[in-house]
Design a protein around this nucleic acid. Structure first.
Lengths: 155, 155
DNA sequence: TAAGATTGAGTACTCAATCTTG
DNA sequence: CAAGATTGAGTACTCAATCTTA
């Protein structure tokens, strides 16, 4: 019988984008990011990087720019510009350290803390929705796999 | 005893970026994309979008720009610019359709086909490496979960 | 010289507007 | 007007260079 594949394909490689893990990861990341993005973008005028910086400050309290870089694996110029934007939006305050005047301590303002709380609440709801879609067991397995893959280089 | 959490946290939300599925997906997607990116970027001067367009043409043979948009969920202006870049790099040829002169049939040139074969081979190797890292069973579960999540909106 | 952080130049992305053909 | 595709303007990203303080 030797049935042909229904899709027309050129010879020379078996490669299929739809089976390529980096591509599938990207598609899932994009899809899950988009609906949450509308919340921080439309209601708070934030970019994804700004939201990440806010989330780190919300979680850890006060920290320096380089800490955010290390923890969130975001490139330093992105962090620097996100900090500047969050500051001029009134979400964040900087404070030059007395003992080392190269470094700045970053803190959320009351307005920034409020934004973090509201966005954090929405994020938790959304995350529960996603995990509910997968089921709790699959969601846990997914998290383990993603953490493993993310360990690949960390930039 | 009531032990305190070791991390310092502000009150008001339980949200933790490190547990947020969209964030974890993004980190894994970035990490897995980066090492493969060096191949198509450094050896062929391609962007991610260009590589995706090439991969679709390699898989499906000849198609129109709108087909690439639909299949790969890439925005049309990105596809349009990627096509222009691939064409001027000599990887792709366009051919205005006789029956509908709005549309263009896109085909890989011999050089484009060669690039697709070589990159496809590298991609397969890399994908096997990633799946090997997870183990075959986990890799399959991951793919199912990712496809499920990617179905969320499709732009 | 190195560390923390910012800046500049070039590239890529987003999304609405536009062009051309049907 | 609709469909296929391109373009323009504004925004964000990348990466190397720079600035300031240690």
């Amino acid at each position: 019988m030797n049935p042909e594949k229904s899709k027309k394909e050129l010879p020379g490689t078996d490669f299929d984008l739809e089976e390529f893990l980096p591509y599938l990861l990207n598609q899932a990341a994009e899809a899950t990011s988009l609906s949450f993005q509308t919340i921080y973008a439309e209601k708070y005028g934030m970019t994804r990087t700004q939201w990440r910086v806010l989330a780190n400050l919300g979680k850890f309290g006060s920290m320096m720019a380089k800490d955010i870089c290390r923890i969130s694996h975001v490139e330093k110029s992105k962090v620097s510009r996100a900090i500047a934007a969050l500051e001029s939006a009134g979400f964040l305050r900087r404070e030059v350290k007395a003992d080392d005047r190269r470094a700045e301590g970053l803190h959320l303002t009351p307005s920034g803390l409020d934004a973090f709380r509201k966005l954090g609440k929405k994020a938790l709801e959304y995350d529960r929705e996603l995990r509910g879609r997968l089921g709790p067991a699959e969601a846990k397995r997914l998290v383990v796999a993603l953490r493993d893959l993310a360990r690949l280089q960390s930039r």
